[in-house]
């Protein structure tokens, strides 16, 4: 039992990372990673929502009629997202302005509904909470890596602390403008996925060619 709980927490970090293996939650990963601090706050928000919604959906899973389960899950997730948004506006107003709509959009982040429907509906409260935290940390891991790279090479800073002296401040480092634009996050996430799948070939998707051939035969 303890092993299963531990694995619920740890496997989503690299083994079943929501971003690099399941390719979920890419939209927000592109939008909030221009600097490390927004990436960290966004990760914390997503982790909270994942843990809380996982726990509550798991708690009422036996009373949930199948026909309305998705709507009830979304209601619960949306409530926690609103609460997290309000807490951010009250305690971290500056950052909440910079995250703008992306905290509200956690509702539509596929990771959360995927964990609710795929895990919390079939597992106990403790396991679901740990699974939520684990997936949140997996998401956080990628966001922090991407956010650090983008802030370091785009601004020459990390958490607003000057690391490279940029030319604007009399140093020798020319900031990479591309890093401030969303496509750079695509390239970085792509490279991370490439790296992980080279080290762990079992994560490589099966070739889609075969599926197509079967479909063609079926069509005949």
């Amino acid at each position: 039992m303890a092993n299963r709980l531990l694995s619920a927490l740890i496997t989503p970090l690299v083994g079943e990372n929501p971003i690099t293996l399941q390719i979920l939650g890419i939209c927000s990963a592109l939008a909030v990673t221009t600097t490390l601090d927004t990436a960290l706050v966004m990760s914390a928000a997503v982790t909270c929502v994942l843990a809380l919604s996982g726990a509550s959906i798991s708690a009422i899973r036996r009373f949930l009629p199948r026909s309305v389960r998705i709507i009830v899950q979304i209601t619960i997730i949306a409530s926690f997202v609103i609460i997290v948004d309000l807490v951010l506006k009250a305690f971290a107003y500056e950052i909440s302005l910079r995250l703008s709509v992306f905290v509200g959009l956690i509702v539509t982040n596929c990771i959360i509904l995927a964990r609710a429907e795929g895990f919390a509906m079939h597992n106990g409260i403790l396991a679901s909470t740990l699974d939520g935290i684990g997936n949140g940390l997996g998401y956080a891991l990628i966001l922090v890596v991407v956010g650090s790279i983008r802030e370091l090479f785009g601004h020459g800073t990390l958490l607003d602390i000057q690391i490279f002296w940029t030319t604007a401040k009399g140093g020798g480092f020319e900031p990479v403008q591309l890093m401030l634009l969303p496509p750079s996050a695509f390239f970085i996430i792509g490279c991370i996925i490439w790296f992980i799948r080279t080290r762990r070939p079992e994560q490589v998707d099966k070739s889609e060619f075969q599926i197509r051939r079967e479909a063609q035969e079926e069509a005949r």
Partner: peptide, 29 residues
């Protein structure tokens, strides 16, 4: 669990609890 009455009960219950949580947070913050 699947009867219409139970479905309605669960949906209304979840809605009420969620609404209370959200409004409590909003008012307090």
């Amino acid at each position: 669990v699947e009867t219409p009455a139970r479905t309605l009960l669960v949906v209304v219950g979840v809605a009420v609890v969620c609404a209370m949580l959200v409004s409590l947070t909003a008012v307090n913050l």
